[in-house]
Nucleic acid binder design. Structure first.
Lengths: 184, 184
DNA sequence: CGCAGATGAGACATTGGTGTCTCAATTTGG
DNA sequence: CCAAATTGAGACACCAATGTCTCATCTGCG
C-alpha cells in the first residue's frame, strides 16, 4: 500500500528538513524501520530524496487545488491557500532548501507548473487591484514560498505554535509588519 | 592578510549557499585557488564551514551597527537595516540554510546575540506603535530573516535584480502584499 | 502446527570525498 | 640573478556512508 511509503516519506521529511545530510540510519530510525527495509522501499538515497520532493510537490499541488486558487477574488484565494498549505509547511521547507532537487527535469517541470499557478494568482490579484503592483508577481510568489518554508521550520523547532502559524503567515504576508493608523 | 581569507570565504558562500554539499574541489575552483591551498588556509571542511558562518555573523552584526538599529524610530531603523544587510544577503541565506552551524556553541551564542538585537528592535517598534502587536516579535524577527535569505537566493539565481532587492524586501515586509485603498 | 513472506540485525565490499604528502613550477624578495 | 617561499597538480591512504548480501526472527494465514 502507498500509505506505507508515504508514512516513511513523512518521517524522512521530519529529519531531512532540518539536516539535509542526515544519514540513512537516522532516517530509517525516524521512520521506525530498519535500514534494510528502507532500502527495500527506496533503491537508494537519491531515490528517497526525489520521492520526498515529489511528495512535497504533490501536497503543494493538492493545496492549490483545495484552495481553488483560480477562483474568486485573489485575497480570499490566498487566504484559502494559506490554510491549505500550512499543514504541509515542513514539506515546503524541504522543497525550499533542497535546491539539488531541481536538477531532476521531472521535479523541475512539476515545480514550474505549481509556481506558475501561484504567480498567476498574484498577477490576477494585481489586475484586480487587490495586490500591490510595485512588487513583481515573481517576487511575491517567491517571498510567499519563503515564508511558508519559514513557518515550517519555526513550527518544527517549536518557535511558533502550530495554531498560530496560519494567522502569522497570512497576516504578515498580506498586511506587513507595519501597524496601520487607519482605525483612529 | 585577512583579506585573502575573506575573499576565499566569499567565494565559498557563492557556492555553498546554493549547494551546501558542494565538494572542496568546487569551492577551491570558485575561489580561484587549488584544493591544496584551500587546505593550507583552512584545516578542513568543517573549519571552512564554520569560518563562513562566522563571517556571515560578523557581517550581520556589522549591518546592525551600521544601521544603528537601537536608535531613532523603529520603522526608520528597520529600513536602515534593510539597506545595510542587503549586500550580505547571500551570507544570510547561508546562515539560514546551514542549521548544522548552530551545533557550535560559539556560533550559536553569537547568533543569539544578533537575533536578540533584531527581536528588541521589533519589540521596541511594537511599544512605539509602529509595528503590529498581533504578530509576535519573535515571528517578525524570524520572518524578516527568512525574507533576507530569500532575497539572497533570488538575487544569486538571477530571479531578482540587485537594484530592486532592498525595495522589494522593505516594502513587502513592512507593507505586505495587499494594496491599501487609502489613496482614493 | 507449518509455511510463506516480510523484517531486522549484522557483515561485507565499494566508493566518493577528505586529509596528507611530494615535487615541479611559479612568484617574491633580497 | 639567486634563494626562499608559495602555489598547483597529482598521487596516495583513510574513512565514513552507501549499497548489497545473508541469516535469524517475527508475523500472518491456511
Amino acid at each position: 500500500m502507498a500509505t506505507d511509503r508515504d508514512s516513511v516519506l513523512e518521517a524522512a521529511v521530519g529529519v531531512l528538513s532540518r539536516r539535509p545530510t542526515a544519514h540513512l540510519d537516522e532516517i530509517a530510525r525516524a521512520a521506525g524501520i530498519s535500514r534494510a527495509t528502507l532500502h527495500r522501499i527506496f533503491p537508494g538515497r537519491e531515490a528517497l530524496i526525489r520521492e520526498v520532493g515529489a511528495l512535497g510537490l504533490r501536497r503543494f499541488s493538492a493545496a492549490l487545488d483545495t484552495a481553488r486558487v483560480e477562483e474568486g477574488n485573489a485575497e480570499a484565494a490566498l487566504r484559502r491557500l494559506v490554510d491549505a498549505v500550512v499543514p504541509d509547511a515542513a514539506l515546503c521547507a524541504f522543497l525550499a532548501g533542497e535546491n539539488q532537487l531541481y536538477d531532476d527535469p521531472e521535479i523541475n517541470d512539476l515545480w514550474e507548473l505549481q509556481d506558475a499557478r501561484v504567480r498567476a494568482l498574484f498577477l490576477r490579484g494585481q489586475k484586480e487591484g487587490a495586490f500591490r503592483v510595485e512588487l513583481s508577481a515573481g517576487w511575491l510568489s517567491e517571498a510567499f514560498f519563503d515564508l511558508v518554508a519559514g513557518i515550517g521550520w519555526a513550527v518544527q523547532e517549536g518557535r511558533l505554535a502550530p495554531r498560530e502559524s496560519a494567522f502569522s503567515l497570512a497576516e504578515l504576508f498580506l498586511g506587513g509588519a507595519l501597524r496601520r493608523p487607519d482605525t483612529p
